[in-house]
Amino acid sequence: MEMKKKVALTCALTGSGDSHLKHPNVPKSPKEIAAAAVEATKAGASVVHMHVRDPKTGDPCRELELYQETVRLIRDADVDVCINITTGMGGDWTPDKENPLMPGPGSDMITPAERMEHILRCRPEICTLDCGSINWGQNLLYIATYEQLRESAKLIQGTGVTPEIEAFDLGFMWQASDLLKEGLLPKNTMFQLCVGIPYGVKSTTLAVAAMRDLVPEGHHWAGFGIGREEFPMLALMYLMGGNVRVGLEDNIYISKGEFATNGQLVEKGKSIVESLGGSIMTPQEARDAFGLIKQKPQFKEVSINRQ
């Protein structure tokens, strides 16, 4: 195993699931998400990964104005951190029970251009690209056809934003490799191995090794596990030569029955890496290592007040 001494640690702040129904302090509003980003950065995170939520209900959403406001608050804060923003919203399909050809409740399908609009405006250092389709639970499908991925990759080109391939299964790695061969992804494209999420790759050493071996030569990669497997997988990813990730998107507990904060998860993840002989990159070291560009956002003029 190839073990790097210094790695980037990403904190996934809130996610797009129903964790707000399980944890009373999952960040919801732009102000709360930005505060979580500051907390995670001060605890040692190199990168923060963000989704947005409806500030009133806490439900996942994809409003451009909320992304803009959250990014503005993070950039205006008294910390420097690399921002990584999802593009995974707007690909959910649930078949209607009476007519499976039609979308049922919970479906949310939009075009690749709509999935990318907030990236073109907010200009984070990194944006995710979920590189394939997957059964997302019992009756929910996440759809990203290869042609949609080609269009998404083309939209990212020229923005200066580095794509991070979110790989939930081995086929995701295959599709990303083909996009690279077509010249649709930049040379500094990153890979994130997402394990333990039904129904993708299980959290086993063999599965992680298989995915790692499919990372194209010369490309940086990271990985994470979810729930109780978050920290064992962090140690495994580090020992296998990858960068690491923690955060309330992946796990809401710091110990059995005790709710975590993002800062606590970062501190614990950092301590594990350090106990194994490694250290965590600063945000600027991550930019230098991965060829990331800190840009000025290109915000639309909006006027909202959602605290």
Rank of each mutant, 00 (worst) to 15 (best):
M3F: 09
K5M: 10
K6L: 09
V7S: 02
V7F: 00
L9F: 07
A12T: 03
G15E: 06
G15Y: 02
G15M: 05
G17S: 15
K28F: 09
E32P: 02
T41Y: 04
H51I: 02
H51S: 05
L64Q: 09
L66H: 03
T70L: 05
R75G: 03
D76W: 05
V79S: 10
V79F: 10
D80L: 11
G90T: 08
G90E: 05
G91N: 02
G91I: 01
T94F: 06
P95F: 04
D96A: 10
E98N: 15
G106P: 07
M109C: 13
E125V: 09
C127P: 04
C131F: 03
N139F: 06
L140W: 06
A144P: 00
P163E: 03
W174M: 11
Q175E: 12
A176Q: 00
L179T: 01
K187A: 15
N188I: 04
L193R: 01
A210V: 07
M211T: 06
E217A: 14
H219C: 09
E229C: 08
E230S: 05
F231S: 00
A235L: 05
D250E: 10
D250R: 00
A260K: 04
Q264P: 06
V266M: 09
K268A: 04
S275H: 11
S275E: 12
S279W: 07
Q298G: 13
